[in-house]
Amino acid sequence: MRILVIAQEKDGAFRKSSREAVTVSKKLGAQTDVFIAGTGAAAKEASAYGADTIYLFKTSEYDAEMQSRLIAAKVNEGGYKAVFFAHDWYGRDISARVAALLDTVVLSDATQISVDGDRVAITRPVYSGKAKVQLKSKGPVAVVSLRSNSFTIEESTGKGEIVEIFGDGMEPKAKIVEFTPVVTKRVSLADADRVVTGGRGIKEAANYKLIEDLADILGAAAGATRAVVDAGWADHALQVGQTGQTVAPNLYMAIGVSGAIQHLAGMSSSKIIVAVNKDPEAPIFGVATYGIVGDLFEVIPPLSEELKKMLG
């Protein structure tokens, strides 16, 4: 079986979700090739996770239409049985286009995956994580997107060959004419191993700094609930939940977060969940591994001190 992993370059490195996808593919025993668009800086890293051939599309522009065509063409030409994406911004923007070009669907947001003969079977959460469903691919090729942080990364030894591929020269129908990066020294929610989220319990905009400072001690991404975003205390890009980002880090700290179902939808598959809330009845305690019932303004200062001691 041959699998094509659609990888991503992030700040010049082979993105974490891409390492996960390559690991999953190798574990399924597949010959694993990689498609990656970008400067090329990350392409070499792909072989360290066992990629066989790395198709590099060198580009400084993001054209989803062209990338989708290039990927679909590669899949057809290479006889791949499956195509793996990460279920993140890029995966959401590209995978369904690729599937449409291949006349199939995306089995999206997989948290478990297996292969049964020629067919790919996945399990994924649905209805904001209130239920799950098992799906099986039909047809010659399965397009799958994997939930980030749901699969363990393993390094492997390999010497993948990098093969450069080229654009088809077509102009996109929808074109990006301007891009403004969000400048942050923190890791992005999508890549984070640890996330510290502030909820309405922080009371005012200025207190979001408490969350950021705690995140910095942990080397974590800072997150926010919708209530905090709606109040204008944090940027929408930081919202975790059904209408924000889905995260599943190893450590998720929810500070002053009630744990509304729409928020849980975005974080309840995190490995360890910590909740700090003064209301012992808050639903967040229902998913928390460790809970502190208390006032966050009293808990954060000693917690920061203890963490600093621990982490040096």
Binding site: D103, T104, V105, L107, A121, P125, V126, G129, K130, A131, K132, V133, Q134, L135, K136, S137, K138, G139
Partner: peptide, 10 residues
């Protein structure tokens, strides 16, 4: 293009 095998509780 997809077979729904079964839904289950989270």
């Amino acid at each position: 293009m997809v077979e729904v095998v079964a839904y289950g509780d989270a």
